[in-house]
Design a protein around this nucleic acid. Structure first.
Lengths: 217, 217
DNA sequence: GTCTATAGGCGGATAGAC
DNA sequence: GTCTATCCGCCTATAGAC
């Protein structure tokens, strides 16, 4: 090294330009979503996120308090941008929701980074004491409710049992999530939007028809 | 502390009994599967695994070389014990495979630790350069092939298109995997075996029937 | 109000003693 | 086969510079 390493005068890091907190927080959230998705939450280093923003890792802790809290806010940010992709603030209802889910699967094939973040973080959330556990549990509860209502709308008369509708709602979410992992590992061999559409059609047909006559389970 | 902390004589750890390598490796694999499931791969500490076996974490590195390699061997061990649960060494074929999948989902409700290990590790494997990436990609390719063949067996005449069968195979695996995460977060509200059975029935009906006449997609 | 510097503690990896 | 010793990298807390 050619610069002077005088003990009392450490090689000074170029000080970052002073930026308003709101803007800085937004920059950090974008970088964090990227790095969390690429490395997973536990392997991700605050210093890597900080480097992308041009500050030190202590700067992140100043804005977010802890790595756990940063994760929670990253997930909120992800959900916010996800709904903003579609014109309405509110997610669609009824049969339109099913088409929305297929469209989402199709859109996801163009944003592998976001898909990876979601897949890794949602699975990691089931580990003991994970900071995002409540966030994901609430998310799934909410989604199941939305889809359950939409399924009921599509099967008006002599509807299927509550158990069937609940299971179908869980399954539609599960297919979307499970396909993401297979697709990330082998994009050529997995067609996410087509498979999601197929399962939804099959479940709607099953719930709509009077299959119980010939049921042998 | 009341014991003597003489500098030259550090409090000596009780030395473990010398155990044959094969036996020790097996003990480590059992403990590792447990800890990886409870904490996730990255959060899991070699020292915690070592403690259960009664050695230091360096002992594990002696037997497995690295934490990454330990994970790979843990997954192989898991698969080996999984097939041993059922009488035949070979997984069932044809329609019997579908019943096997539902039975597996039911059995999984009694072994949350194993389910957690699988869910966390399979999702983590999609991160950049993860040591288990090839292992999981091959696993999914193999499983899709098995299920694809079984679906064809169940729909003999004027069968559905290859694309439909492929998508159905991916979807059945995806439902099982995705349901595990929802179930781990909220066991009371998710019925894994019932939902898996529902999706399989719905897909079989869909692939078997001549739905294309009224298809509007 | 925004950020950096310093220091402690833990986890993984390597080398060498017993 | 197992241990001790040592290194480096990461998260976190505290203090203080601008």
């Amino acid at each position: 090294m050619t610069t002077h390493d005088v003990p009392g005068v450490p090689a000074k890091r170029q000080r970052s330009a002073r930026v308003p907190a709101d803007q800085r927080r937004a920059e950090i959230l974008v970088a964090a979503l990227d790095v969390f998705g690429a490395r997973g939450y536990h392997k991700a280093a605050l210093s890597e996120i900080a480097e992308r923003v041009g500050i030190t890792h202590q700067g992140i802790l100043h804005h977010f308090g802890s790595k756990d809290q940063l994760l929670v806010e990253v997930l909120e940010y992800r959900d916010a941008t996800d709904v903003a992709d579609f014109e309405n603030q509110e997610p669609p209802h009824g049969p339109e929701l099913m088409r929305h889910l297929v469209r989402t699967a199709r859109a996801n094939t163009e944003r592998a980074g976001l898909v990876q973040s979601y897949a890794v973080l949602s699975a990691e959330s089931v580990t003991d004491g994970h900071p995002a556990q409540a966030s994901f549990r609430d998310r799934f509860t909410h989604l199941r409710g939305l889809i359950r209502d939409a399924l009921r709308d599509s099967c008006p008369s002599d509807g299927p049992s509550d158990a069937e509708v609940d299971a179908a709602a869980s399954s539609i979410i599960a297919v979307m999530d499970g396909l993401q992992i297979q697709w990330l590992l082998d994009p050529e061999r997995v067609d996410m939007p087509y498979a999601v559409g197929l399962v939804i059609d099959a479940l709607l047909a099953r719930l709509g028809s009077d299959h119980r006559a010939g049921d042998s389970r």
